[in-house]
Structure formats: structure tokens, C-alpha cells
């Protein structure tokens, strides 16, 4: 198991395309995590807001975050799929 892990690490280091892909997916993952935290903060703000007019932009931002996260997750899924295909090939 240890040798297998080590070989995986070496392969990741030597394969520049794969390294780029890992870097990209990590970076997108970080953005998605921050978006989730931002969404949570907005939801709290929305609950606390009493003025209906002020609720509208907050709700709109929540809708935007959902769309952005959906898009980001689809990209991550695609990266994972291609990386699996490449390692199988």
C-alpha cells in the first residue's frame, strides 16, 4: 500500500499536466468553500433583515452563489472524470 502511494506521488510530481489539474481543482475547491461560507453569512443576514426591499439583493446574491457553486462542482466532477480516464489509460 505504501509503495503504491509513493508511486502515485512520484507520478503526480512528474506529470506536469496532472499537477496542473490538481492545482486547478484545489483552487476551485477553495473558492467553492468560501462561496458556501459567504452563502451561510448571507442567509443569516436575510433572516435578520426585516425590510423586504433590502431582502431582495441578498436573496439575489444567494441565487447567484447557488448557480456559481453548481457550475464549479460540475467542473470539479469533469476534472475528476478526465483524471480517472487518463490514469486508466
Amino acid at each position: 500500500m505504501k509503495t503504491k502511494k509513493l508511486l502515485k506521488k512520484v507520478r503526480e510530481y512528474l506529470d506536469s499536466d496532472r499537477r496542473e489539474q490538481i492545482k486547478r481543482s484545489k483552487s476551485i475547491g477553495k473558492v467553492l468553500k468560501e462561496l458556501k461560507e459567504y452563502e451561510r453569512a448571507l442567509k443569516d443576514e436575510l433572516h435578520a433583515e426585516e425590510n423586504e426591499k433590502d431582502c431582495e439583493p441578498i436573496q439575489k446574491e444567494i441565487d447567484v452563489i447557488r448557480a456559481q457553486r453548481k457550475k464549479g462542482l460540475a467542473i470539479l466532477k469533469e476534472i475528476k472524470r478526465t483524471s480517472k480516464e487518463n490514469s486508466a489509460g
Partner: peptide, 19 residues
Amino acid sequence: TRSSAERSVMLDDTEIREV
């Protein structure tokens, strides 16, 4: 790198219209 990741999740015109 972060900036490139942000560009990936930004919505395009079609997605903006959908929202």
C-alpha cells in the same frame, strides 16, 4: 491561480439570464 479559479465559476451570459 485563484483568479483563474474565480473565472471558472463566474456565470456566463446564458447562466445569468437563467438566474
